[in-house]
Write a protein that binds this DNA or RNA. Sequence first.
DNA 1: CGGTTCATGTAACCTGTTACATGATTAA
DNA 2: TTAATCATGTAACAGGTTACATGAACCG
Lengths: 188, 188
Amino acid sequence: MALEHAILVSLLEQPGSGYELARRFERSIGYFWTATHQQIYRVLKRMESDGLLDVRDVPQERRPDKKEYSVAAPGRAALSGWLHEPIEPESLRHDLAVKIRGAAFDDPAALLHEVERHHRVHSDRLAHYLAGELRDFTGPGAPAPLDAGQELQHVVLRGGIAYERMTVVWLDDVLATLRRLGATGPHI
Amino acid sequence: MALEHAILVSLLEQPGSGYELARRFERSIGYFWTATHQQIYRVLKRMESDGLLDVRDVPQERRPDKKEYSVAAPGRAALSGWLHEPIEPESLRHDLAVKIRGAAFDDPAALLHEVERHHRVHSDRLAHYLAGELRDFTGPGAPAPLDAGQELQHVVLRGGIAYERMTVVWLDDVLATLRRLGATGPHI
DNA sequence: CGGTTCATGTAACCTGTTACATGATTAA
DNA sequence: TTAATCATGTAACAGGTTACATGAACCG
């Protein structure tokens, strides 16, 4: 149930509404955990009724009112407990790899456009992460020295950067392989 | 519904029983898509009743009989259709990154053992993939030249190798960061 | 007048996980 | 005789996805 924990971390970093959380899950924390607003509202409700979160109604002018959630003491304890439990190292879930192996039973060259599209998406993400790193951690406007929370956010971002960089290089390899197969020969 | 497609690819590569598929999902195809036997049996049953697969009862001596599944024409068509559809580039789902960011609100040093454990698991996977590459693709006993299917399996395996290598390097970075924070200072 | 942003939700469905269950054979 | 391997499944539950729904404000 890592979504709960991701929400606890995000609300500890900064209290906010379901809507705001949904947007954070599109960037920042969303770099390594995704969730839709439907999921978030459902889980927030449960966490509140379980006493992990506090809610505060915030009336706003010219905007709909919002509910601002923050972490209650039992929520903090739950997070701490989870942090001390071991978790399973993740395994990949990679549709594109399934497609690439499946291409042996179809036309490998037909995958070229798809792989090129993924290549563009990952290149864009890489550029976006690098811009964020410059803005928040390594650029002239960034705080120095960083506090522990910022150091940890930075090392997680470096992981995202390493992942995207590795993926772009691998997709180049995939493209070269598909082109070679398309050029030299027939398929099954 | 990528599990269906992963099963189609695996059964095209080699027909087999639910049990055999479950074991393949622990290695080979499991490097980039995981599934348990319960899931596999459920999906096989559905795919068979949808006409995507053929079943053949195979009586065995000194072993329980098994059901050998193979891909029927509509299954092959379904795979081909999926191969020509675009899919969303994946996003990461990485609990460990959630934990690392969460460590700012707990004791960063307490995560050291957990991260070291993940480091060992990924190092082992890397060694395992490299051994497989040598055995199946680059070593003296490997077929040469490779056919299209083998080339594609190899490029997917190279992706797994790149992923594990990147992860091990990143976890070194995480360990150094956690040690630095533990050494220098108090936390929130 | 139409699209985007802010803000919240319900309902149905599909997928994935965990626990339980059976039963034969083979190796230590 | 105990554990592991081969082989198949059911049931309950948790988690994730997709579609539908509402409504104000603001920008062009």
